[in-house]
Simulated assay, not measured.
Amino acid sequence: MGQTAGGKGKTFGVQGGNGGGPAGPREDLWGQRGNRWGLGGQWGTRRVNGAPQRDEHRGFGHPRLQLPETPAMFPTVRTAPLGSRQIPGSPYSLTILQEGFSRPRADGSFEADCSITLVRGGPVTALVDTGGPWGRRRLLDDLEALGVSPRDVTHVLCTHGHSDHVGNLNLFPSAALLVGFDLSCGDGVFLPNGLDRGVPYAPHPGFVEVVATPGHVRAHVSVVVRGTDAGTVVVAGDLFEREGDEGVWRGLSEDPQRQEESRGWAVGVADVVVPGHGAAFRVVRGGCGGCGDVEEESGDSKGDIEGT
């Protein structure tokens, strides 16, 4: 986990592809590695004897990865601070109840808690990550301030099982509970799902979907929310520690190669990313904003974008 994000935007280059998404083998699909964000360098379908091929049985190490199609990549993709904890939309809007953080201490330990995001407006009211148990009262107060009771929450979607992400699961006994790839409801009834095979879990198909994004830990997921005023939002847990986390995330990863691929997929589909331990940020493609206008709390939401 890194410190909270600074005020400058970030830039990385991505080689162009045909936009086929993360469907092919790593050696054919991802191409060159090593740009600033640790993203694979190429997107598209693999080629066999010069002919493009789709392979739905490869990718991210899963035997049957099925992910949403990714848009065509642009020559340059940058990031910039979103500048707001509110993302309106229809049917779903997002409220970042808590902006995650990580603060090192002099004795080598660090203080940390995760981003907590409320997704609501349609038939699903979802909480993405719950923070640590030390924040129980604050979480309840934040929900109450929005007129949301624990029993109003239909789904609690925890990106992975670390204590700063799952510490308040017991506050939501009536919700469907997802921790990584494990889905349960009621009194300990566990439900089958395809996340461990790379098949998304969709509380509201087309609008709210959970996608396997392994790497930080094997059973890591991200929540994709479509149709907001800012475009597609990926609530990414510790797939991204924060904006500008190059030099940090690899040291916290169980499988950096798979996380690199997961991060590349996320940047391909997201207009906004909510990271696990920092402020939300925009993904800016081709010199444009990449997402709609969002009411800002303060300042210029794009920040100062560094050149390549």
Rank of each mutant, 00 (worst) to 15 (best):
164 D>H: 15
215 G>C: 04
161 G>R: 05
254 E>L: 12
297 E>W: 07
306 E>T: 13
89 G>L: 04
291 C>R: 13
150 P>N: 06
6 G>M: 11
302 K>I: 14
260 E>N: 04
207 F>K: 13
93 S>Y: 00
263 R>T: 02
98 Q>R: 15
14 V>I: 14
274 V>P: 00
109 S>Y: 06
302 K>W: 13
296 E>T: 15
125 T>P: 09
191 L>K: 12
129 D>E: 07
25 P>N: 11
134 W>A: 15
59 G>H: 08
83 G>N: 08
51 A>W: 10
13 G>Q: 13
216 H>N: 08
261 E>S: 04
281 F>T: 02
36 R>M: 02
70 T>E: 14
48 V>M: 11
167 G>W: 04
248 V>H: 08
279 A>I: 03
115 S>R: 09
287 G>F: 12
260 E>K: 03
238 D>K: 05
20 G>L: 05
111 E>W: 10
97 L>P: 02
174 S>F: 09
50 G>D: 07
283 V>C: 12
198 G>S: 08
94 L>R: 09
7 G>V: 11
37 W>I: 00
240 F>H: 03
297 E>Y: 03
204 H>Q: 14
235 V>T: 09
285 R>Y: 12
25 P>S: 15
213 T>E: 00
273 V>L: 15
138 R>F: 08
66 Q>E: 10
115 S>N: 11
111 E>A: 14
191 L>D: 11
16 G>D: 10
158 C>I: 06
62 H>V: 02
235 V>E: 00
144 E>N: 15
303 G>C: 01
64 R>C: 11
199 V>A: 08
2 G>Y: 07
212 A>M: 00
164 D>E: 12
66 Q>A: 13
182 D>W: 10
190 F>T: 14
239 L>Q: 09
21 G>Y: 05
167 G>D: 01
17 G>W: 00
103 R>T: 15
25 P>I: 08
261 E>A: 10
151 R>K: 10
129 D>W: 00
178 L>Q: 15
6 G>C: 11
199 V>F: 11
162 H>S: 11
242 R>A: 14
215 G>Q: 02
72 A>K: 15
233 V>S: 10
43 W>K: 04
171 L>H: 07
82 L>F: 09
170 N>G: 08
202 A>H: 01
106 A>E: 15
252 L>T: 12
234 V>W: 05
29 L>V: 12
89 G>P: 02
245 D>I: 05
138 R>G: 10
222 S>Q: 06
100 G>E: 00
239 L>W: 06
272 V>R: 01
100 G>C: 04
17 G>I: 04
302 K>V: 14
256 P>H: 09
199 V>K: 11
291 C>H: 10
81 P>G: 10
106 A>M: 09
87 I>H: 04
154 T>E: 06
258 R>H: 02
217 V>F: 02
221 V>C: 07
168 N>I: 09
274 V>N: 03
287 G>W: 07
248 V>L: 06
220 H>T: 04
3 Q>V: 15
119 V>F: 09
67 L>F: 05
8 K>G: 07
100 G>M: 04
8 K>Y: 03
51 A>L: 14
118 L>N: 05
262 S>V: 02
140 L>F: 02
35 N>L: 03
279 A>T: 10
307 G>C: 08
87 I>W: 00
248 V>K: 09
